[in-house]
């Protein structure tokens, strides 16, 4: 809480700016901050007539399902590792393609390919699940039909957990490549052309221009994207995993993440307390992670830190 006079002085000075921020503040208060009282559900045994604050307090009982079967470490590890791969490989690929598109000579080619690369974004995970199943089905799948006609041993993808740490990131990249590319491209387009003109006069070739002008200029965007990805690292991409892996227990060892685990636990028993407990675990863990990362960023370059 800022000092009272300091705040009112600021309010007076930047009246218009505050006014311009009113919709945003109202939005997040109503939509996010007030409902946060619901975190308390995680510590109660919910009774319908008693309501949120009348329900009995049960301490950490609702969290028991997370650590009961010694699975917590595995799902936490899976969640973090997958997301790290998504963030690292995803951003690199998107930046790479954005640079190629940005510096490409053909205008029409750029526009057409950019549109087409956006198409996977529209393929919902439900449909992706259908396609993947038909691609890899052991007896009739596209890949195995091909392998069989070449007299190669068919792949038993749906009973081979070791393949999925590759497959899942591949489908993730596929789906998001167009989306991320648009962000980076927009940032690059915001770079003043004067920089390049100057560089060209200095004799910098196209690769040098990319290295010394384009890449440094997109760094803030990159950091924002990474920070947001990290912020939801404990949650992200439930649908991707759920639709691709679903109920296939043979794959869980490498594909189970916190979200899918919590979902499975609640699937047959809608319990407000247990659901809230799962969410809170993700939030607290994610929060610690993000504070650490931000701290490191701030030490190296305070301008890029988020807060």
């Amino acid at each position: 809480m800022p000092k009272k006079d300091g705040f009112s002085a600021e309010l007076k000075k930047n009246k218009i700016l505050f006014l311009m921020l009113v919709p945003t503040i109202a939005f997040f208060l109503i939509n996010n901050y007030v409902p946060m009282v619901g975190i308390y559900y995680a510590f109660t045994k919910f009774d319908i007539q008693a309501g949120l604050f009348g329900s009995p307090f049960v301490g950490l009982d609702n969290f028991k399902f997370l650590y009961q079967s010694n699975i917590l470490w595995n799902i936490t590890k899976n969640t973090i590792l997958y997301n790290l791969v998504f963030i690292a490989v995803g951003n690199l690929l998107q930046i790479f393609i954005a640079v190629l598109l940005y510096k490409l000579s053909g205008n029409v080619f750029r526009k057409v390919t950019q549109t087409l690369m956006f198409m996977p974004y529209f393929v919902s995970y439900v449909i992706l699940g259908v396609l993947v199943y038909n691609l890899f089905n052991y007896e009739l799948g596209f890949i195995n039909t091909l392998l069989k006609s070449l007299h190669i041993q068919p792949l038993d993808v749906f009973n081979s957990p070791q393949l999925w740490p590759v497959l899942i990131p591949v489908f993730y990249m596929w789906k998001w490549v167009g989306y991320g590319t648009v962000i980076y491209l927009a940032t690059m387009l915001g770079i003043s052309s004067e920089y390049y003109e100057a560089a060209e006069i200095d004799g910098a070739n196209i690769f040098q221009q990319i290295r010394y002008i384009t890449l440094p200029q997109i760094k803030p965007t990159f950091i924002i994207l990474v920070l947001f990805a990290l912020g939801s690292i404990m949650k992200g991409q439930f649908e991707l995993f759920y639709q691709l892996v679903g109920s296939n227990g043979n794959l869980y060892i490498t594909t189970d993440i916190i979200d899918t685990y919590v979902y499975r636990s609640l699937m047959f028993d809608f319990d407000i307390g247990i659901g809230a407990a799962g969410g809170l675990y993700q939030s607290v863990f994610g929060f610690i992670l993000i504070i650490t990362v931000n701290f490191l960023v701030k030490r190296r370059n305070p301008e890029y830190a988020l807060f």
Binding site: F28, N32, G231, S283, F287, F307
Partner: peptide, 27 residues
């Protein structure tokens, strides 16, 4: 604008912390 970082953080914070579906639904 003095509070720009505080407010940015408070906005960002909502991506990590939330009250879950039910309180939001009631809201």
């Amino acid at each position: 604008f003095k509070y720009r970082n505080t407010i940015s953080f408070l906005i960002y914070f909502t991506t990590i912390f939330g009250g879950g579906l039910i309180p939001w639904y009631i809201m």
